[in-house]
Design a protein around this nucleic acid. Structure first.
Length: 430
RNA sequence: GUGGGCGUAGUGUAGUGGUUAACACGUCUGGUUGUGGCCCAGAAGAUCGAGGGUUCAAAUCCCUCCGCUCACCCCA
């Protein structure tokens, strides 16, 4: 029986490493532009953190966590999301004593026991940013702009921001009551699944995929109509900020989505998602919101905060969908072809060239024809041919496989070869 | 957790009861003596996802399991 990777996990193969490192270096670059500092928290945490932070009744905690007891009987959970651990670390390490808001980002694997499908894995990776300690809408705007900058820097087009406000707990309760009342009036017309949802979590009826329901909820009461005082002010001001962002980023586009509700308990006020315009069901590539109640829930002082998480695998899916597939794997700069009893000397030459920063391989010991074929098949840029003749004369043939540079002889000195190679590189980019 | 589709060489597919499972791409070798890409010839590579059952005979029919995939639930 072959051993396979566990369900819902994936190897990141050599051919994909280049795009992965491109995405993660973009994360770091953008975070740094916005002055966010990196933080890493452990892969696992005490289970209690997620129960209190994410919410005991959420699907994530109820059925999706990788939870186990360690040898001391402690209940441990592989992190299903990034925000609660950051807040835990923020409290534990006294980051609350730094000038607030503090700006943090992370890149980390996440674990959720779910049924895998396109864009959904049991282990996936998230890039996330959190700004802790500032209640004002300018930070909401900053976080959203950061997310947008990240997306557009990766070259993605046709991505929309959906945004909504779910206010605070009090007006949300009031709103839910009104929404329930409204939906009850149409209960008989609702599909079974939404009748159930109406009882379990009425907000979910809003983003139902049933057409009948969508038709009905068009006229449903809207959450933002129930915002009051500071919540309303916050919302209105955020919209102004969004318009500022729109003025400075040509492709930026947002729309208010009254059906947008998020599945984690800690959110309040601002919630948002970035989604490709033509996306399937797992299309959301970046999502977040304000989570002012969270830190208090896990035992800290009342502390406002906002952030987002972005799935790297989904991001890469979207990049692959949108951007022409050029061969992204690294190319060999020089391959050395060796004939006769020159293998040791050729080996030494490869070694020297590498130390000069040139990606070099020694061709496998086969016939010259086969070595050349190999050189071509791995897409090497140049070939250096070393035979007994060359060792005697001290000069070897240097040959380009792609450009129309003519073959020529070059002295068998690594620094000269390296220099020549680098000169050619410059020409080809000019 | 629920429901649909699918598992045949590295990859993509054909084959729907009957002799050594086919094709394309990829890989390797060769097409005289030390030169790639095109072309030609050849080779290697598959316990037909696993286990069980029906049958004289199973890749093909049935059952179970595993995996992939799509949708739902939910989410990045």
């Amino acid at each position: 029986m072959k051993i396979l990777a566990p369900r819902g996990t994936a190897d990141i193969l050599p051919k994909d490493q280049k795009i992965w490192s491109k995405v993660s270096s973009t994360c770091k670059q953008i975070a740094s532009e916005f002055s966010y500092d990196r933080i890493d928290t452990p892969i696992f945490e005490n289970t209690e953190l997620f129960k209190r932070g994410v919410g005991d009744q959420t699907d994530i905690v109820q059925k999706e966590m990788y939870t186990f007891k360690d040898h001391s009987g402690e209940s441990i959970t592989l992190k299903p999301e990034g925000t609660a651990p950051i807040c835990r670390s923020y409290l534990q390490n006294g980051l609350s004593n730094s000038p607030l808001p503090i700006r943090l980002y992370y890149i980390s694997p996440m674990f959720r026991y779910e049924r895998p499908q396109a864009g959904r894995l049991r282990q996936h990776h998230q890039f996330g940013c959190e700004a802790i300690g500032d209640p004002s809408p300018q930070v909401d705007a900053e976080i959203i702009e950061l997310g947008w900058t990240y997306i557009s820097r990766l070259g993605l087009k046709n991505i929309d921001l959906r945004i909504n406000s779910i206010g605070d707990l009090k007006n949300r309760e009031l709103y839910i009551k009104e929404l329930k009342k409204f939906l009850m009036d149409h209960k008989n017309k609702l599909p079974k699944i939404d009748q159930e949802r109406l009882i379990r979590s009425p907000l979910r009826v809003l983003d139902s995929k049933e057409e009948v329901t969508a038709e009905i909820t068009k006229n449903a009461p809207k959450c933002i109509d129930y915002l009051q005082n500071e919540d309303l002010e916050h919302w209105n001001e955020l919209i102004e900020f969004l318009n500022v962002i729109k003025d400075t980023h040509t492709q930026f586009n947002y729309y208010i989505d009254h059906s947008l509700v998020r599945g984690l308990d800690y959110y309040n006020r601002t919630v948002f998602e970035f989604q490709p315009r033509e996306s399937t069901s797992q299309g959301t590539i970046l999502a977040g919101g304000r989570y002012d109640p969270l830190i208090e829930k896990i035992g800290g002082p009342v502390t406002p905060a906002i952030g987002f998480g972005s799935g790297i695998e989904r991001m890469i899916l979207e990049i692959k969908k949108q951007i022409n597939k050029t061969d992204l794997s690294d190319k060999t700069d020089i391959i050395i072809i060796h004939i006769g009893e020159t293998t040791k000397k050729s080996y030494a030459m490869a070694s020297k060239l590498r130390r000069l920063g040139i990606s070099t391989v020694l061709a496998p010991k086969r016939s010259v024809k086969a070595q050349m074929r190999y050189a071509n098949n791995i897409n090497a840029k140049f070939v250096l041919i070393i035979g007994e003749k060359e060792i005697k004369s001290g000069k070897a043939q240097f040959k380009s496989l792609h450009s129309n540079i003519e073959d020529f002889d070059i002295e068998l000195k690594s620094d000269l070869i390296a220099k020549k190679f680098n000169d050619f590189q410059k020409i080809s980019y000019a």
